[in-house]
Amino acid sequence: MAKLITGKGIGFQQLLEACRNSKFVALDLNNGVIGNFQLTPIGRMLRNNLREEFKRSDTETVVYEGSCGVSLRENLQFVKESFSTNLPFGIALEKPFRNEKISLSESFQLALPTGSFLTRSYFVNPSVSREYMYKVQRQRKIWWMRFACDPGRYSISDTRQDAESRIQTTSIRAQLGGEELTLEQLELIPSATMQEELAGFQAKIGRTNSRKITPDVIRIEQCVELATLEVIMDAIESGGLSSVRIHRKLAPYKCGIVCVVEGASRLEELRDLASHLANVLRRANVTALDCTSPTNGSSERTLTKQLNHLDSIGVPFSLVLRDQSLQAGLLQLRSRDTTISETIHISDLPHYLLRIITN
């Protein structure tokens, strides 16, 4: 097989082939259709992190978790009975599907045997719904930019309005490999169009809550598998297969642990220390990959090979253990993106790592 070249200026199909050769996804390419799409275990970890970031992305509006097994009417009824339903508020759903073809761009489709749509429906006062729609569009674009290697690739499409239903539709898009991908759909649905789904639902407005109105609905929909593929493509296009620059908050593993063995007699001690540090990080909810175990063959792999492996699966930080780690408690903390290492003390973990991951 010819060696794949990744980086700016490559075509979309080459970028997909690079994804296929990554450690995150398996797929086939046939006349613009991406088939047999499967995420590897580490790819599924990335998808799960992306899903969680989507769910907690709105901090300004109260969003309730809904049930995909019931209708919107029943979800609204539950929210009305359980909570104060002052406008605006939202309902989030995850809707599984089977055998869907998702349009990526004008030239490519993603055929998925299984997958999920993440949706969030905001219920908004009709007098401010258009302004609220503009705010949500901007928030969603910024959300994508925040996790991207290349924030400049994202844009908001022109708004289209259906003449009959008066539903306004727009989308968040990304430029990748010469193609424009649609990542999310946003709709502003007038209350008059939602009469059957809302079934007479009214919400309180005003300081005294004396008035009730039927709200407009602003809906966001994202296919989480498509979103995961886009994050992988963005990272590979920016860094290549040798350094998959997935954002530290989305990365499946936040930290890898490797060791440099200067004397074979200290190997088991270093492995014990690595196991201890991995447990410390995991207890602090920092996903850590211990690469020093015998099953990983770390004693036979050079430090460069160990770090290259961690870079290829998007791990943003690596802890390098040496003899001085046993003697003085000193560790080398390496950044994937800069390849620069700094010396920290074992007592700084996990607090220091948590701080740089969350900032």
Rank of each mutant, 00 (worst) to 15 (best):
I218L: 13
L183H: 05
C19L: 12
E300Q: 06
P88N: 08
Y134R: 08
S129F: 10
L181T: 00
I142L: 07
D150T: 04
I232T: 03
N308T: 02
P113F: 03
T170C: 15
C255Q: 00
H309V: 02
V261F: 05
S165H: 03
S107C: 12
V124Q: 11
F89I: 03
D272I: 06
R73N: 08
P151Y: 04
A288T: 00
K204N: 10
H309M: 10
E100T: 09
D158L: 14
T304P: 00
G69F: 10
L270T: 10
F83N: 12
I313M: 11
T214W: 08
D158Q: 15
M194V: 07
M1I: 04
C259D: 11
S127Y: 09
L229D: 03
R146Y: 02
I102Y: 11
P252W: 04
S121F: 13
H309T: 04
K305E: 14
E94Q: 04
G90P: 06
E196L: 02
E100Q: 13
F24T: 01
L110T: 11
L198F: 13
D290P: 00
R20P: 03
T6D: 08
R271Q: 06
L87P: 05
K254F: 01
I356A: 03
R166P: 11
R334I: 03
K249L: 01
T208S: 07
L46R: 00
H309S: 09
N279Y: 09
I220T: 15
L353K: 04
L307R: 01
K23E: 14
E230L: 04
N86F: 06
N279P: 02
D162Y: 13
N99D: 14
G177Y: 14
